[in-house]
Design a protein around this nucleic acid. Structure first.
Lengths: 327, 327
DNA sequence: TTGTACGCGTTATCAA
DNA sequence: TTGATAACGCGTACAA
């Protein structure tokens, strides 16, 4: 910049004004400066600008993982919203629990104007201790006191899926639940139980199979499912990844879906409609969760709103072939 | 930081040394500083640190799009490699051609230590004019003079797929090619033609259907395919997204794959093995392209290498059900 | 072992 | 309309 100023015969202040159109600059001077900058291939240093402006035009997105259709949809939605607002997304992932989460949080500080955090079990305390007060934060899929959130009603959606299964005539409906400490997993299990009660079906602990939201755990759970006697006629997996794994295992075992077993998932990841049979599932507007989270953060960043709001996005049951007709 | 120094009764320099372990600090002093920082919830400002260090610990990743299984794999690989090196990934996408690309390039400058760029038709000139000289750049899927690159041998891989089809006994093999100006698309078409020539099959322009790498264009191409007479017995789509689209259209038209038509794709996106029948395809190590690109940039950033290298990753033919047995 | 003081590249304030 | 200069928050010689 100094060099541009020197060669154009002006001061750095004038160069700054010319390039940012942030102040009065003589027409002739302006031309000369722009031309010189072009010739020297000068591109302003964003870091210095950020330091001065106390703003980075960047929103951090912290995800627990990047694998599978779910997180890529979140990223896509987030990047879309950020781009529309001329913001950037700084992507980070933290797999290994708390220490990793803390590390990621702290390295993000100072390089972002706001944060979207998705973490299975985020606690208010962790955020408070590792983030400067005043940094707008939106929690994705969950709610933390004092911060904005974008989530869905997991229990209601799981209840709808289970009710659908019951409505089809199924009376023994097994569940592959998510990891026990996970709030989403717990809420979905609660919805499942609620729907059973509604349908006057006795809850049976044996029908609740353990999973951890991975495809592999879905496969494993299907094996346990097959060992059940009498075998349930329907299987509800607490997310699509596990449903896909279960579908493969079921098929490998010679069972037909939905003829022998009705199968339902949760999330409606892109893959859900591509497998055969396509998955009946609770549709979660995943990319919209990403974009709404960014929008919420941005509103707070820009001061349009005092604090990010708590948004609950609607889900809907999507019935596809994996559930078949009435029993 | 000033506040921490004040409350701890030391100078900011000592605070800096204590927090970064970058110089001698008395044990007692150190403890007091850390405790004060903790209490004040002080987190160093990354922007200022970056300005001083002339490094941002961030690699920019510029993608043409974020949709579909391909780009999310790239992102995943890139983030994994960056994270391993304690770097961040700044994600940007540029859909709408050159102006958008230039804008994205320029807003990335100064906030990244290096750049991974994936763009259908990137030109050396565009990079040279919009990036400061010396910024390490790795081009993904393509090669640009003066920059590093991570790519695959598209022609050889397409040739292998086509040869496999011919080896199965197919004599009329149609191609759904990618968009004409795209270098990858052209190379794959060349490989297809080469394999035909090898197998003494006459090239036939009618067999080359137009596509644009989207699933929808695969569906459309399948329609054209069905209008061909005599109908070819095999269909090679220049990427998996189109193959998935074609598969659906073929099935909707009442054709069985592979009994009536053998189908092959390219890329081996995660979805390829989930559709029914699973796709025979040219396996491209997509996430590895992302991680290798990051690694190459990092080597240049750290000065381990003078300039990023040109890497060609191996592909391999993955035979799955969509191609069936010998005719 | 600690503190002082300078500079990283910008933008913003103020005086000219 | 322009230029000199003071920050922005940090790291780091260098001196103490």
């Amino acid at each position: 910049m100094r060099e541009v100023a020197r060669q154009a015969g002006v001061s750095v202040a004038t160069v700054s004004r010319a390039l940012n159109a942030s102040g009065p600059v003589g027409e002739e001077t302006r031309r000369r400066i722009l031309e010189t900058a072009e010739r020297l291939r000068y591109v302003p240093n964003r870091t210095a600008r950020n330091l001065k402006r106390v703003a980075t035009e960047t929103i951090g997105v912290l995800l627990p993982d990047l694998y599978g259709g779910f997180y890529s949809e979140v990223i896509r939605g987030a990047e879309r919203a950020a781009r529309a607002a001329r913001y950037h997304t700084l992507l980070a992932s933290a797999h290994d629990g708390l220490p990793e989460l803390v590390r990621a949080l702290r390295t993000l500080v100072g390089r972002v104007d706001g944060l979207v955090v998705m973490s299975p079990d985020i606690e208010a305390d962790v955020l408070r201790k590792n983030l400067p007060p005043g940094l707008p934060v939106v929690v994705l899929g969950g709610a933390v006191a004092g911060h904005g959130s974008v989530a869905i009603d997991n229990a209601a959606a799981a209840e709808a899926v289970t009710r659908h299964l019951a409505g089809l005539g199924h009376r023994r409906i097994a569940l592959v639940s998510g990891p026990a400490p996970n709030a989403d997993a717990r809420a979905r299990r609660d919805g499942y139980r609620r729907a059973l009660a509604e349908a006057d079906l006795a809850p049976d602990p044996v029908l609740e199979l353990a999973g951890d939201f991975t495809e592999a755990s879905g496969r494993a759970a299907a094996a346990s499912f097959l060992a059940l006697s009498p075998r349930p006629t329907a299987l509800f997996c607490a997310n699509d990844a596990m449903a896909v794994g279960a579908l493969q295992a079921l098929r490998d075992a010679g069972l037909r879906v939905p003829a022998d077993v009705a199968l339902a998932g949760f999330d409606d990841i892109p893959l859900a409609r591509y497998v055969t049979p396509a998955l009946t599932t609770a549709h979660v507007p995943i990319d919209e969760m990403g974009s709404q989270a960014i929008d919420a953060v941005l509103r707070a960043v820009r001061g349009d709103a005092p604090a990010p709001p708590a948004v609950t996005l609607p889900t809907r049951l999507v019935v596809r072939e994996s559930c078949g007709a009435r029993l």
